[in-house]
Computed example of a mutant assay.
Amino acid sequence: MIRTLQPGQSCQVWIASAGTGALELVFTSDEVLFEAPNWSLDGAHLILNGAGKLWTLAVQDRTIAQVPLTGIPDLNNDHVLAPDGARIFLSANDGHIYGAALDGGKATKLTHDDSSFHFLHGVSPDGLELAYVGIDGGDFSKPGQLMTMPAAGGPSAPVDTGPGHCDGPEYSPDGKWLYFNTESFTTQAGHAQIARARVDGTGFERLLGSDTVDWFPHLSPDGRLASYIRFPSGTVGHPADLPVDVVVVSASDWATPLHTWPLFGGQGTLNVNSWSPDSARFAFVAYPSNLQEEAS
């Protein structure tokens, strides 16, 4: 399903300074609901999805353009850039993962198992492996499982992260770890917490214990910092349109926020890694709305 803005709602793309906490509003739309920014390898563009398509947003002149992709269904908000900066991996609404050139053209379907939905989140630093969440039979009452597969396509392999729902798996910059959120540490429905495991599934550990519902950990390219999105206690899943916090921490101390930005959003705000190549900034999306007044 393609997400759209509700009456009285807008989409705001922000860039945050990891050092000072300063915010810069770089783009606003009252027509298209854009989601989940990635940052191009040259630092010049943000890559987002919106209206089922892929878009590039120029950071300096703040113009947005659609990437002319063919051979792919409507997109969701799970997309990651290949380490070479020239290609992108994409999840589509048919439940499959595709690869394409970032400047457009025909996309290549990489998954072929129709018995599972594939939600892409990570690519290894050498560009050879992808990490995704598999939902068996597209049955969202079942927990998502962390899976890896060759980036060129091929058989998938599970990574054991316990019985709870897992989401957002992403490789560390050194390629040794997968960072993700999981419900394996609690019996409370929806109580996702930040964790990691080595790529072979060993060393599974909780990185942050909190009363909030914590999703989508993203390490900076230099491995020193991390961002994530914090949902209110009791939230199930990662829904849209509620008060959330975007948080930055040191990767060596997840319990001590360095900066926190409250906003109205959730789904689409920080689903994928949005750090700049120099690790100095990152991007996120807010969705201010008349609903915000009702929620408060």
Rank of each mutant, 00 (worst) to 15 (best):
L207R: 01
G105M: 13
P257T: 07
F204L: 09
H118R: 01
D167S: 15
N76K: 04
L25M: 07
T260L: 10
Y98G: 01
I229C: 02
G99V: 02
H218V: 00
W215H: 08
V246I: 10
G71T: 12
T256S: 15
N93F: 02
S116W: 02
R281L: 13
T182Y: 00
A251P: 11
I2S: 07
L120Q: 05
G127Q: 11
S172K: 02
A286Q: 04
T70K: 13
P239M: 11
P68A: 09
F284R: 00
E183G: 04
G95W: 01
P173E: 15
A101Y: 15
C166V: 14
G175I: 01
G168P: 03
L178M: 07
N93C: 09
G144Y: 09
I72A: 01
V199L: 13
W177P: 00
A240S: 15
L57D: 05
D245H: 11
L263E: 05
Y171F: 15
S156E: 03
K106P: 10
G138L: 00
L178I: 09
T28Q: 03
A286S: 15
S210Y: 11
T202W: 05
D94Q: 05
G237R: 04
V246W: 00
A82F: 15
R198I: 14
R206V: 07
P7Y: 08
S279E: 10
P158V: 01
A18T: 15
A36M: 05
H218K: 06
S10A: 13
